[in-house]
Simulated scan of single mutants.
Amino acid sequence: MNNKPILTLDRGTRCTAWNYSGQRLAAGLDDGSLVIYDSTDPASSTFTSSARFKVRESSILKVVWVPPEYGDAVACVCADGTLSLWEEVAEDAGGNRWKMCKCFDRDKSQVLDVQFGNSHTCLKLVAAYSDGQVKIYEVLDTLELEKWQLQAEFQNVVDLVSKFRNASCQSASISWNPQKNEGQHSSFVLGFNSNVPTLNSAKVWEFDLDHQRWLPVAELSSPEDKGDQVYAVAWAPNIGRPYELIGVATQKGISIWHLSTNPDADGRLSTHKIAMLSNQDSEVWEMEWDMSGMTLATTGSDGTVGLWQSNLNGVWHQQAVLKPTQ
């Protein structure tokens, strides 16, 4: 059996993002260009470049697709700390082109991570910044993606009164609750890699409809691990479990957490660490669950991809290891 590549990325590619709905791939390059690849023949799974355009003069570090029900648009985080949103639009003469519909304001801090989330009234976006700030934006009319409004701003701490003026964050990781059940509150998990221990631990934030504010409802860390720097978080899809499943990667390894769905009298959700997975000596930079929420894929500093699963007895193990070629 001959294994043939379905796509060869341009030299200087720094990041990619897959659009499952449209069978498209977006790739950010060192020179600040964004390349869009489309499937030309679904039967043979081959892709060709359909668009290439300049986003910034600095390299693109992260690309995130807008949820497919809101059209074809991508958010780009660049090395200069900027965040911009690009949308594919149809031209009168035929064909499509990509245009920038929003460049988000920034002060001295840089955008480290950004993710989109659904609610039943609007499209939301959460961005984490290098000073430890978290900003929530929303757009009420998804046909006007240039009209984002700042809904909330806070820091990733349980004590909402605390403020850290000299926080310095190297990276951040955000993962929205992928569920879209009607009546379910919007929520996401966020962790930092910073010089402020109380910012680092992964915390679950939920939107309180009664008081119209975001509240920390759970902290995914053991007492002895609360100051550990978080490299990646991933919220698993739920296909009927009575609890949520979230992965958190730190320097100590990958922890798998159960998160209850029933809050206590104070509105908090109970947590339980069910597994601690070792990734040997490499740091985990990215994690992603499959669509069933049964398999967790991890990759990091050594370029190895690990696939993790739980057996019928609830014991987690590494199902496969994919190592890069030269």
Rank of each mutant, 00 (worst) to 15 (best):
A127N: 07
Y231F: 13
E182C: 07
H185C: 08
L145S: 00
G306A: 07
N200I: 07
N2M: 05
K273H: 06
D225V: 10
M276D: 09
D80K: 06
S33T: 06
H185M: 12
D10P: 02
R56V: 02
G253M: 06
S162V: 10
I174K: 08
L9I: 03
L112N: 11
T250Q: 05
W257N: 05
W205D: 05
L140V: 14
I60R: 00
A73H: 00
D264C: 07
N193Q: 11
S39N: 12
C101H: 01
P67H: 01
H272W: 13
G71Q: 02
S260E: 13
I256C: 05
P68T: 10
S50C: 08
I60K: 00
W86L: 01
R268N: 11
S109Q: 15
K147S: 10
A90C: 05
N238Y: 05
L199Q: 10
A234V: 02
V126Y: 10
S186H: 05
R24V: 04
M100Q: 15
T271E: 10
D266L: 14
G293F: 07
N311S: 05
L190F: 11
G293L: 09
S270R: 06
K163Y: 10
W98F: 04
E244K: 14
I246Q: 02
S50H: 02
K108L: 09
T325V: 08
V134L: 15
T16L: 08
Y243A: 09
D107T: 08
G300P: 05
G191S: 11
G191T: 07
S171T: 14
K124T: 13
Q319E: 14
G314R: 15
D80Y: 03
M291F: 04
P68C: 08
A127Q: 07
G303D: 06
L269G: 06
D80I: 04
N195H: 08
Y137F: 13
N177E: 09
V74H: 01
V139T: 15
E69F: 03
V55C: 06
Q155D: 07
S130D: 13
Q170S: 14
G81D: 06
I274D: 09
L25V: 04
G227L: 12
W98Q: 01
Q251T: 12
P216C: 08
D72R: 01
K102P: 00
T261C: 09
Q155W: 08
G183F: 06
T295Y: 11
L29Y: 00
G240N: 11
H272T: 10
P197W: 07
S109P: 03
G300T: 13
E57M: 04
V230Y: 08
V139R: 01
A73V: 00
Y231C: 13
I36V: 15
Y20Q: 12
V233W: 03
T295P: 02
H120G: 12
E182A: 08
T8Y: 07
P263V: 01
Y37M: 02
S301T: 15
S278K: 14
L85N: 00
F104R: 15
A167D: 01
P67A: 01
W257L: 02
A152M: 06
